[in-house]
């Protein structure tokens, strides 16, 4: 036990034993998988048609926003080039499915159906469709454990989207559903409704993924630090399909002739 908590060399033992016990997780997941599969059989045609049209609308709306986004991203790239900023990183997301969670009610860990065979590595960021979910803490051949951001042992460096105030969000030990910001002065400019995104200062999570929305700011009389509670944007307890983030090839910003001109103009 001591060896496992302090050193590394039992990792291999655990790694290979995991192959033997993975089927148990799959079997334990069967009931909920059947429920989703057979739940789909008994849906009315009208309901399906409604959903279909709603999804069509959604696709249209998203495509519209994507066009805008493309434009903005190109503009951003140009501006970064002007500022001689270094490489822009394009992330690649790979879909994975949740097949189990830690039976210990006091930790927030979930099991994914992708492991080292698919190239998953420790420290890899995990997202769902709405925001940051957590990071990989243990990799096995076919599966991997994710530590969710709401676990009290997890800390996420964040910044407020509105004004860039930096903070660290950790899981709250009592509820395990929310986050709280540590050591924020009562005078800091953080109000209810502020969106927190990853700041990327940990060199682990990429910049700018949504983490949570400030739900409550408690400033007691004479308290040095405010107590700030945050609701995670990711569907922590409901997501079944998650995204594993791989760092894509870094695209070096090419020196543009315009930039040289701009710099000359400045001098």
């Amino acid at each position: 036990m001591f060896a496992d908590s302090r050193f590394d060399y039992l990792g291999r033992v655990r790694y290979y034993t995991a192959i033997a016990v993975t089927p148990l997780h799959l079997v334990a997941d069967l009931p909920s998988r059947f429920a989703t599969a057979f739940g789909g059989l008994f849906v009315e045609r009208r309901q399906l048609a409604e959903e279909n049209s709603r999804l069509r609308e959604e696709v249209l709306r998203l495509q519209f926003e994507l066009q805008k986004f493309d434009h903005l991203s190109a503009e951003n790239q140009r501006l970064n080039d002007l500022l001689k900023a270094s490489a822009i990183v394009d992330d690649v997301a790979v879909r994975a499915q949740l097949i189990g969670e830690s039976p210990d009610p006091f930790t927030k860990r979930v099991l994914l159906n992708k492991g080292s065979r698919e190239g998953v590595f420790v420290g890899q960021p995990v997202l769902d469709a709405y925001g940051l979910l957590g990071q990989i803490v243990e990799v096995q051949p076919l599966t991997s454990w994710v530590l969710l951001i709401t676990d009290p042992q997890h800390a996420t460096p964040v910044q407020v989207n509105r004004n860039g105030v930096r903070a660290i969000a950790t899981g709250t030990p009592d509820s395990l559903h929310g986050l709280s910001l540590e050591n924020i002065a009562t005078s800091a400019d953080i109000v209810v409704g502020d969106v927190l995104v990853t700041s990327g200062l940990d060199q682990r999570f990429p910049v700018g993924y949504p983490v949570g929305v400030v739900a409550e700011v408690l400033t007691g009389n004479g308290a040095t630090f405010a107590r700030i509670l945050v609701n995670p944007t990711a569907q922590i307890d409901r997501s079944r399909n998650v995204l594993l983030l791989f760092r894509g090839p870094t695209t070096e910003s090419s020196p543009l002739p315009e930039r040289e001109k701009a710099l000359e103009g400045l001098q």
């Binding site: 036990m1 496992d4 034993t17 830690s102």
Partner: peptide, 17 residues
């Protein structure tokens, strides 16, 4: 117990002991 440890992702040897 060792298999349970791997299954639950707890410290190796905790459930075993």
């Amino acid at each position: 117990g060792f298999l349970v440890d791997v299954l639950k992702g707890t410290l190796l040897g905790l459930n075993a002991g």
